[in-house]
Design a protein around this nucleic acid. Structure first.
Lengths: 245, 245
DNA sequence: CGCCTACTTGACTTACTTCAAAAACAGTGG
DNA sequence: CCACTGTTTTTGAAGTAAGTCAAGTAGGCG
């Protein structure tokens, strides 16, 4: 299946200029495709994976499990993302990965990746950059969850996801798939589920966005961006035109 | 000055086996040493640095500045850390760096690093790993600030800093330098300064630790670790004996 | 000594959590 | 097609932890 390789090339190309040779190297990689049901775990805290995952379709989440049993979501990943690239160099997983909605994920043997890195250092640098962008997103999440009021916090999350979805060409018109429950939203943003619901209701009432049937609809991008104190520089993507009004 | 190069070798050696050739390559790098006063900024949000910083002594902080003017600290760095390694591949800084107490920092030209990477790929991998460990620390901070109650949150931060200080051989007996104000603690943990003070008072009263005169004293490590729900696996350091009782 | 900053403490307020129950919805099997 | 079950969402009411505000103390420095 050619498409799986291309989503990776598209995503890395978002921040790194890839030569034809790099793309060839990527296309030669072995991809083992697997489909997952909503909320199915596929890498657990403590695992020592031998493969890197690539999101081919759907959404994938990374999360911590706490002593108290609470779950904390750390990041969400879209088509083209390598949600556990760090597994290449960090032996033991300090967090787990699961599918959010239904998702299909390609697994690439570390061994093959190392060989490809040796042959095409630019490819290695692209993946390195990818892990650095990841870290920038984590930093923003620290700030979001620590320093912003609830409404801003939630708006910011939706801004980020919508913006990234657009870059991944997953936005049609003004909407994209977003199969996330209120509980999960709470475990992402650090708020109680009742607050999640009320805050979301406020955002809907503002007319800037809606979240319904597992779909995010952005009605007034500029307004949502304002509400979320969102500025996309930290995503370090090639400039793209802002999402309409 | 030989010492500056050695702290980097020591730190990278904490997670990556370096060959003599790697060390030689590191020792050949140009280090421009600069001293900073407490709270002095040395890289700002928006900068496009041409050098990588290495903490030679003292503590260095990374922070976001928000639209509201609020400051959010993201991470603290100790002797041997490369607090802006990501600047090698991400052009524009999405956060700033400042000295916490008095600190001395070595600046290494990106150009030289790239050349060294080319010559000794293991060195590049060591730095890559370093950025990945960084990301693991960010992830933990998301969880800490989002999912843990105030007291646990604060205890966890001190556990992490003490543990890392020990790895960096900055702990003498049961204490290490920690030149951080209550305001900064609040801007790290996402709490109001009054709460910081009261929470810290609770921790002192527990007898597990103290913070005084810019020094962290750990009196009962196991107890502090319990209070902070702290488990050091996410730091991905070589196993070290736990800090005494 | 006096000024400035950092820390401490108290009283008040409020935003968020918790608890509880109802309503909407999705899936299953008759 | 509809009843039955379980899950997710919605709403309300009550309690509380943490924020805000304000004042006072202590420490560091010219």
């Amino acid at each position: 299946m050619e498409k799986a390789h291309d989503v990776l090339i598209r995503n890395l190309g978002e921040h790194t200029g890839l030569a034809e040779e790099d793309m060839g190297e990527i296309r030669a990689l072995t991809f083992m495709l697997r489909d997952f049901a909503p909320n199915e775990d596929f890498i657990r805290q403590g695992d020592e994976p031998e493969h890197s995952a690539l999101v081919v379709s759907g959404m994938v989440a990374r999360y911590h499990l706490l002593g108290s049993g609470r779950r904390q979501y750390l990041a969400f990943h879209l088509t083209g993302d390598l949600p556990d690239a760090q597994g290449l160099f960090i032996d033991q997983m300090d967090h787990g990965l699961s599918a959010l909605g239904p998702a299909s994920v390609a697994f690439i043997p570390h061994r093959e990746l190392f060989i490809a890195f040796r042959r095409r250092p630019t490819f290695a640098l692209a993946v390195w950059r990818e892990t650095l962008r990841d870290a920038a997103i984590f930093r923003e999440a620290i700030t979001n969850n620590s320093a912003r009021p609830m409404q801003t916090r939630m708006a910011h999350l939706f801004c980020e996801l919508f913006y990234r979805a657009r870059a991944a060409q997953l936005v049609r018109g003004n909407r994209c798939r977003m199969p996330i429950s209120l509980t999960q939203l709470g475990e992402t943003l650090g708020m109680a589920i009742a607050t999640v619901n009320r805050t979301l209701a406020d955002l809907r009432r503002s007319g800037a966005m809606d979240l319904r049937d597992g779909e995010l609809v952005v009605l007034k991008w500029r307004e949502l961006q304002r509400l979320g104190d969102f500025s996309p520089t930290y995503l370090h993507l090639k400039r793209q035109s802002p999402p309409h009004a």
